[in-house]
């Protein structure tokens, strides 16, 4: 059953990836659980990211450079790379699977409509942002994002997340995580521009691309190449051992957990 379920999801992951490529009408009508109109940002662009997992070496350069560039609090991440040891479904061989994650800048972002004050909103270029002047810190959006892409920044006391480094895109530069991607796995770009690298790669690999948690109908705009469909939802894995022991074997807790 599990297997079936997962491959069904895998199917969905692919289909949705395809479907989501035709950016939805950018003015979504307001109403319960459909987002308020998009505002700000360049309406001629639609940013997205493609992550070629075959090229991810799990170096965490993205994690750290993003953390520094965007001044995230210790222990909180705008992007992370999980690492798994996985058995190949057919061959049974073991290999390492790296899964970089960040905000998917969903076409149908569940984090946006729940915001009681419209502090979190989607720009017309698809980037989902948080207005930290307006945010009341209710954390509803944090719970509403299926991807754990958001957190409350303990320093600003407001919601925080990946902005696709909009401040760098605006300056004609690459996001920190893209710029420092050692394996060259992360590709960002304007999907409305058919000549952009991301558009070309999407066209080339259309059938292989997958997105995370397609069943949630969020239409993520971060696409994965080389994805194992068993990872598009919460993986059935032996969870990471989180204990930190001191030299005497005493559990020390996690240095950076806020609350």
């Amino acid at each position: 059953m599990d297997h079936l379920r997962r491959s069904l999801l895998g199917q969905l992951a692919r289909l949705s990836a395809g479907a989501a490529l035709i950016p939805l009408s950018s003015v979504a009508s307001a109403g319960i659980n459909s987002q308020p109109p998009r505002r700000e940002g360049d309406p001629t662009k639609r940013y997205g990211m493609l992550i070629d997992l075959r090229q991810c070496i799990g170096c965490q350069a993205c994690t750290v450079s993003c953390h520094i560039e965007n001044d995230a609090p210790m222990g909180k991440f705008r992007t992370t790379v999980s690492q798994y040891e996985v058995e190949h479904q057919e061959t049974g061989t073991l290999a390492t699977f790296m899964l970089p994650r960040l905000c998917n800048h969903c076409e149908n972002p569940p984090c946006v409509p729940v915001c009681p004050v419209q502090a979190t909103y989607q720009q017309q270029d698809g980037i989902v942002v948080v207005d930290s002047d307006r945010c009341v810190g209710c954390a509803y959006c944090v719970n509403a994002c299926p991807y754990d892409a958001r957190f409350i920044n303990d320093r600003t006391q407001t919601a925080d997340k990946c902005t696709f480094c909009a401040h760098r895109l605006e300056a004609g530069l690459l996001p920190a995580c893209v710029e420092s991607c050692v394996g060259g796995a992360r590709i960002i770009g304007d999907m409305r521009d058919p000549e952009s690298q991301i558009s070309r790669m999407i066209a080339e690999h259309r059938d292989e691309l997958m997105v995370l948690q397609p069943e949630k109908n969020t239409l993520p705009q971060v696409f994965y190449l080389g994805m194992d469909e068993r990872f598009i939802t919460r993986p059935l894995a032996e969870p990471v051992a989180l204990e930190v022991l001191d030299p005497h074997g005493k559990e020390m807790g996690y240095e950076f957990h806020g609350h």
Partner: peptide, 25 residues
């Protein structure tokens, strides 16, 4: 003071670093 936390430099970009240079695309 208007915020229960530190007020970041920019309402959208928070305390992200100012770009080291700009390139007109």
């Amino acid at each position: 003071t208007g915020s229960a936390g530190e007020k970041p430099k920019d309402r959208i970009h928070g305390n992200s670093l100012a770009p080291e240079y700009r390139v007109d695309l």
